[in-house]
């Protein structure tokens, strides 16, 4: 087992005094791919922002916990400290990045600027070609002369990934990198990520709302709900034998799990939003297994027997249902 490259322990974040993340814990080994999964408002993008040191821009502060990355404690870094990490140690492909390129600069100008800034001393032109090769863009010389509007969505996303790679990061954080793309393009981008890991040995933190997307590329999955991590385990475990009722419901909501005409699993109520988190388990008001303890005590993310963790006071998981008392 590789030592962990990234460990987040009990991270709590507030925006203007309002708690938006609490007790977020996850870890990512070197060369590993972690899928961070959750629905709108679960806190997955905020976790990315915290990890990139970008919270101050939205009025956010870390109020609890720690983030350790390759021997550096990220929590508590000042601006100069972050500047050494951001883009250099940790690359970032932000959400909705299809429109994040500068429309009046060619791809080449933007990529070369990033290389000059983040990777001084390299042959800028050669490295730009190499970066486009890494993201599998054919004919780099041609692409470098293009403006963003001349490229398709899939090509622009590849350019964004190339930009994030300019500083030779050890960890690449990608927030919903395939959400706006067609399925065939999505598949190609996911293949780029898989290849990058093999070619460069980097780790990947892939944020998505789609369990199917992470299932194809991630080794481990962290499921977020209501600003906290509710389940952490291997992809196989989480997808086939979830240990948290929210994960089970998410899986059952996918149309592929039901025969035509059969109703999908739905979750009653509405998602927990910051400011209206219930005391106790955030999921309790929507959970059919909730007991008194669930409504009063927030369950911690605790390790289970088989090298995974779950934040639940106990529910009859499908494989235990036979001997569960209801």
């Amino acid at each position: 087992m590789n030592p962990d490259l990234l460990t987040i322990t009990g991270l709590g974040v507030e925006i203007n005094g309002l708690p938006v993340l609490s007790d977020v814990s996850l870890s990512l080994p070197s060369h590993g791919v972690l899928g961070l999964v959750g629905e709108t408002g679960s806190g997955k993008s905020l976790t990315c922002r915290a990890l990139m040191g970008l919270l101050p821009r939205i009025g956010g502060t870390v109020v609890a916990g720690s983030m350790e990355f390759a021997g550096t404690t990220l929590t508590g870094l000042d601006d100069r400290g972050w500047a050494k990490v951001r883009g250099r140690q940790i690359g970032f492909v932000p959400q909705a990045s299809l429109n994040a390129l500068d429309p009046v600069m060619t791809v080449g100008a933007q990529l070369k600027e990033a290389v000059r800034l983040l990777d001084p001393g390299t042959d800028v032109k050669a490295r730009s070609h190499e970066l486009l090769d890494l993201v599998r863009l054919p004919d780099p010389a041609h692409v470098l002369r293009r403006y963003p509007h001349e490229l398709s969505g899939g090509m622009r996303q590849r350019v964004m990934i190339a930009l994030a790679l300019a500083g030779r990061p050890r960890l690449l954080v990608a927030d919903e990198p395939t959400t706006a793309l067609d399925v065939t393009v999505q598949k190609a981008i996911l293949e780029v990520f898989a290849d990058l890991r093999t070619a460069t040995g980097m780790s990947l933190l892939l944020v998505t709302h789609d369990l199917g997307v992470v299932a194809d590329v991630a080794d481990t999955i962290a499921v977020m709900y209501g600003g906290t991590v509710v389940e952490l385990g291997s992809t196989q475990q989480v997808m086939t034998d979830p240990s948290h009722p929210y994960t089970a419901a998410l899986l059952g909501a996918r149309p592929t799990t039901r025969a035509a005409g059969e109703r999908l699993v739905t979750i009653p109520g509405v998602p927990a939003v910051p400011g209206q988190w219930p005391t106790g388990c955030r999921f309790a008001p929507r959970c059919e297994w909730a007991r008194d303890v669930c409504r009063t005590q927030q369950p911690a993310l605790l390790p289970l027997a088989d090298d995974r963790s779950s934040a639940c006071h106990g529910w009859p998981a499908p494989h235990e249902e036979a001997h569960a008392h209801v």
Partner: peptide, 15 residues
Amino acid sequence: LIDSIPGRSALPPAA
């Protein structure tokens, strides 16, 4: 198109 459906391999088949 069918090959591109994400998570086909890892997902449990239809009940």
